[in-house]
């Protein structure tokens, strides 16, 4: 397709098209902020009601895996930002490799999450399936783990969608990338970075509380 017809008739120019796409992504991200915001509101209400139970529950999460996963996700965001920055027909090969690298890091995140889930299952910490916790704070610890599994599972679903987008864009950008592909990549990158930001807050709420006391 020649570049002159790269934008639909409702747009005045290519920058106009790109700006519209960017604004649309931010509206979508605002809806996602409220989706995760509702979860975090519920978490804060119960943490306020049961501060010691939440601190104790947090100490049972796998902070080594959580920290490694945060580093993995920050690095994959860096690779995607790098790919957006250097995108051009001359750099199609390296852009493809960067996107595949970011997608592989995303898969590594999911794999580590799987290890974490299986350990928690082994420790009988999965509400609704197998939850046993001896001690006076069992109920509030169960509340924490309900939040933990719902929030991380919804986040992991977003990760899987993002990984699919990155792989699809890597395939498309391999050959003769155009400005339309750059716009698509930029939109997908905004989504990927947003998923990264959600994890930054989930990490602080899930893994860090209660570490300084025992």
């Amino acid at each position: 397709m020649p570049e002159s017809s790269a934008f639909a008739p409702q747009y005045a120019s290519i920058p106009h098209r790109d700006h519209t796409a960017e604004l649309g992504m931010w509206v979508f991200i605002a809806t996602e902020v409220l989706l995760f915001g509702g979860l975090i509101l519920a978490y804060l209400v119960y943490r306020h009601a049961f501060p010691q139970g939440f601190a104790e529950a947090s100490r049972h999460t796998e902070i080594v895996i959580g920290t490694a996963n945060t580093a993995v996700l920050l690095t994959s965001s860096f690779l995607v930002a790098w790919a957006v920055e250097i995108f051009s027909p001359d750099t199609a090969r390296i852009t493809t490799w960067l996107l595949m690298g970011a997608a592989c890091l995303g898969l590594a995140f999911i794999a580590l999450k799987g290890v974490e889930y299986s350990r928690e299952y082994g420790e009988h910490l999965v509400p609704g399936i197998d939850f046993q916790f001896a001690g006076p704070r069992g109920n509030s610890i169960q509340l924490f783990f309900i939040f933990y599994f719902v929030a991380t599972a919804v986040h992991a679903l977003h990760m899987l969608i993002g990984i699919g987008l990155l792989i699809a864009l890597a395939m498309i950008c391999r050959k003769a990338p155009t400005t339309r592909h750059h716009t698509a990549l930029h939109s997908a990158a905004l989504y990927w970075h947003f998923v990264d930001v959600v994890w930054i807050f989930l990490f602080a709420l899930i893994y860090l509380p209660g570490r300084s006391s025992s």
Binding site: H19, E22, W26, L34, L41
Partner: peptide, 22 residues
């Protein structure tokens, strides 16, 4: 301008959600 307003809208609504909710 406009992009920052759109990006800030999510934060604005999140602020209302957490403020009134908590």
């Amino acid at each position: 301008g406009l992009t920052l307003v759109f990006a800030g809208a999510g934060l604005f609504w999140l602020g209302i959600l957490l403020w009134l909710g908590l």
